[in-house]
Simulated assay, not measured.
Amino acid sequence: MQDSLDVFKNRPNAIMFCQELKKITIEIPIKRKDGLVFPPIPGNIYIGNLINDKVKGEKFFTSKDSLTILEQNSNPEKIEIDKSLSEKINSTTFEIELEKRKNGKEYNFYNLSIPIFSLDRQKAFVELEHHCGSLCGSGKGIYLKKINGKWKIVETWRTWIS
């Protein structure tokens, strides 16, 4: 709601929202002998990107969070959102939308990642993707912080665009 996603059932022309959250695999970069480091596989992220990113001038995750972040690689590949929430939104699955794409049909949906949490569970990182056609879509990284018991977006940035 804070990001103004138009996905609720009672809204005309609401966009579909995947009812399963996808996993982001956290990688440790491997430097080649020539010093080059390849970018992470699409959909994955290097732990150094998370640990070194600054939000409002301060490191968001710290080295104390690194083991907790890596342990989250044991998350399942996807997690379904709670049924009480999925009943309120125009929900779909990634498989349904992929089938539409394969058959040349129109599709327009959001896909959210499983949150990556800090050690104290007061900070999180998620990725949100919007797929709206073969050459239409974008992704964004979102840092969240629990403030007074509620999750608040503290920073977003575009990770890709088509």
Rank of each mutant, 00 (worst) to 15 (best):
S86I: 10
L119N: 15
D120T: 14
K59W: 04
K83H: 02
N73T: 09
E71G: 12
Y107D: 05
K100I: 07
I89Q: 00
Y110T: 01
I79V: 15
G57F: 04
E99R: 07
I116H: 13
N75E: 04
S66C: 04
N111G: 07
E77Q: 14
E58D: 12
K78A: 11
N75H: 06
K78C: 11
E95W: 06
E97Q: 13
F61W: 07
E87M: 09
F94I: 10
Y107N: 11
N90Y: 03
G104V: 02
K78Q: 09
L112D: 02
L119S: 14
E80Y: 07
I69V: 10
N111A: 08
E97I: 02
N111V: 01
K83E: 06
E71C: 11
S91C: 13
Y107P: 11
I114N: 11
I69T: 05
S113N: 02
L85H: 12
P115I: 07
F94N: 07
S113W: 02
D120R: 14
S118W: 07
N108F: 08
T62G: 14
D120H: 11
S63A: 09
E97Y: 04
I114M: 14
K105Y: 14
K56V: 02
T93W: 02
V55N: 05
N73Y: 01
K123D: 01
S113R: 03
S86V: 09
D120S: 15
F94A: 15
I116A: 14
K56Q: 13
D53Q: 08
E99F: 03
S74Y: 08
L67H: 07
F61E: 01
E77A: 11
K54C: 12
S91G: 08
K54Q: 14
F94Y: 15
N75I: 00
E97W: 00
I116T: 13
F109Y: 15
K100E: 07
I89D: 04
E106G: 12
T92C: 12
K78S: 15
I81Q: 06
K123H: 06
E95G: 05
D53A: 12
G57I: 00
D53K: 11
S91V: 01
N108K: 05
K59G: 02
S84W: 10
D82E: 05
I116G: 12
E95S: 09
F61L: 01
K78I: 00
S63V: 10
F60C: 01
I114V: 14
P115K: 13
R101N: 07
L98D: 05
S113M: 05
